[in-house]
Design a protein around this nucleic acid. Structure first.
Lengths: 177, 177
DNA sequence: ACCTGAACACCGTTCAAGT
DNA sequence: ACCTGAACACCGTTCAAGT
């Protein structure tokens, strides 16, 4: 709060006229990051899968543009921008043929996937030093975690590719039969 | 730190002999929650899917037993217990026939799903008051978010069922063809 | 309607010192 | 090897007051 007031060139307590408390600021900041500037009323495309992938990649990218936003996720803030994104996602899936009975599960699954991926990616944005340290620690542990070591799980840094590929698998599972 | 020292009946600064700083305490606490007491060297079961589901449900349940632990997730802490769980998961998937080239993506996908679900579930542990407020706000917004409203996305509280069902879909997608 | 400074209760951590 | 209190720099927020 004090830092924020400084940045705005106002007194600290002036903030409290516009905002309830620190939590409130966080909620507003998180939702602000998630404003969606996608094609709003896109033509009735046949490619629902492509649309979903695009929406969710944008979701993740928006948050990674402000890595602090990932640390704000463990709160139940459902601002208007988050709700809009959920609504758009619901509508797309529904139009794609997902039954209403499966819709909630589908939405939450995709949400979980995106949130987990974003938090993980933001947390593992290692400096080179950290990376070197991780590498060393891993070598030392290769006999205890052989499978992880063999696949170089912790050294694989194609985050974007992994996100896209995993999302593809999830959509495979969710696709209406 | 001050609170923790009080609880332990020691001086505040005594903690700093055993621990570097507050972050260190958080890392240790998170990993402590994740100690795995599963069947360690289970018989070579044929049911790899059941094994994975069991492991991941236990992962989520362990964290939900201490809801504060979910808020510690946005950090890159890979303690020995987390690594053990990842190793066990890798081994199971590998034995199930997932190719090495797909293994990392599979692991991270499941990780993302579990982490997202846990954080979300912990954050939405609403009191009845909150729930009532959410309901009211939602009614008010039903014309702006019709699809969400229709499926009662925010009122559905079968979290455990949704977790299991969504995990099933993800595993469908990940299953080796 | 909007802003403010003083004050309060609370942090994590450094340091220099104890046993 | 292990513990300690005093002190520092920093928080978020209440309150009573200003314009």
């Amino acid at each position: 709060m004090r830092r924020l007031a400084d940045r705005l060139g106002s007194g600290v307590m002036s903030l409290y006229w516009h905002v309830d408390n620190k939590e409130d600021v966080f909620d507003l900041a998180l939702d602000a990051v998630l404003e969606y500037r996608g094609s709003p009323q896109t033509v009735q495309s046949q490619d629902w899968r492509g649309e979903v992938v695009h929406m969710l990649e944008d979701w993740r990218a928006s948050m990674l543009r402000h890595p602090w936003s990932a640390s704000l996720l463990p709160r139940r803030a459902l601002g208007p921008n988050i709700l809009s994104r959920l609504e758009l996602l619901s509508k797309t899936l529904s139009r794609a043929g997902v039954a209403d009975a499966d819709l909630n599960v589908a939405i939450w699954s995709l949400w979980n996937y995106v949130m987990g991926a974003t938090i993980t990616r933001a947390g593992f944005d290692l400096s080179d030093d950290d990376r070197a340290a991780a590498q060393k620690r891993l070598e030392h542990l290769s006999e205890r975690y052989p499978t992880i070591e063999r696949c170089r799980l912790l050294l694989d840094d194609d985050w974007d590719g992994a996100f896209r590929k995993g999302l593809g698998f999830l959509l495979d599972g969710l696709s209406p039969k």
